[in-house]
Write a protein that binds this DNA or RNA. Structure first.
Lengths: 150, 150
DNA sequence: GCCGTATAATTAACAAGTTAAATAATTCAG
DNA sequence: CTGAATTATTTAACTTGTTAATTATACGGC
């Protein structure tokens, strides 16, 4: 009864998701910063190592970063020789990005710390809770996504 | 077994939280935009209506926005006469913010749309799932937050 | 082969996130 | 009562998010 005027402000779903994300990321950011990369730059490097050379558009999907942001991030990473970019032979509009040896080296240095953080988080929050959370997030996300026009 | 080299990239908790948040917010942003406010500006206005005149440090906590961002947002909202700011009488360092009549009017216009969106989201994702998600998010968030130094 | 249209990526412009530094007012030791 | 340390807020500098516009290439009809 009485969800009267407006939802109790502090209990909005976007806020709850933001808070949870922040609780997790605050354990990662200092470590990433110490290695000279932002959260998003790390996502891109990890995605590139996973995928090999890949179109920018697909990289955007995988790293969940919008194209304009990604464009700037790639410019930055390219300037630091952590990645390479080249036009696709078949279609000059398309750009292919790949991680460089130097980028791979960086990932190799950071990855163990990242894994250690994940482990610490899993322990602090409880593996079961994390697993359940994954499932629920996935389910809710899918149910809210508009029918993709593939 | 074999969570071998690095966690499968697409299944990181921060990404899952980001994706879920985006799935929710993408249903709000266009509506907020149509009323001339960003997501964060809306959070601030809602929080101010909830709390009445309030110190901006506390406003930052409640709206979950860092002080430097909040400072800019308040400058913007004040410039549009949606809020007021004044120094506290007792301690001139402290600034008190309050929603203005014009701000209240805006909230009154937007709130019904916001509520309608929440309802649509709850229906699409299932009330039970949402409730369960809230609970888990809260639990995980709390377990990860460092022991606050109150 | 040429023209309009569609597609991939980048740029532009403004808002916000993040960390550090600067400003300003208060408190407290001496 | 003065000045060093503390506290609240803002500013600075850089990065990213968000929407719209622009650029460059490809494609399809003629």
């Amino acid at each position: 009864m009485s969800r009267a005027p407006l939802r109790d402000f502090s209990h909005s779903l976007p806020m709850a998701l933001l808070r949870a994300r922040e609780a997790v990321m605050s354990r990662f950011r200092p470590m990433l910063r110490a290695h000279g990369v932002t959260e998003q730059q790390w996502r891109v490097l990890r995605a590139l190592e996973d995928s090999g050379e890949i179109e920018i558009s697909r990289l955007a999907e995988r790293s969940f970063i919008l194209m304009p942001s990604l464009s700037r991030i790639l410019r930055n990473l390219e300037g630091r020789d952590l990645i390479t970019r080249r036009a696709a032979a078949a279609d000059q509009r398309r750009v292919l990005a790949a991680i460089s040896p130097k980028g791979r080296e960086l990932v190799g240095e950071v990855a163990p710390h990242s894994e250690a953080n994940y482990a610490a988080i899993a322990e602090a929050a409880g593996e079961d809770n994390i697993a359940q959370l994954y499932g629920l997030l996935d389910q809710v996300t899918k149910s809210l996504e508009p029918p993709s026009k593939d």
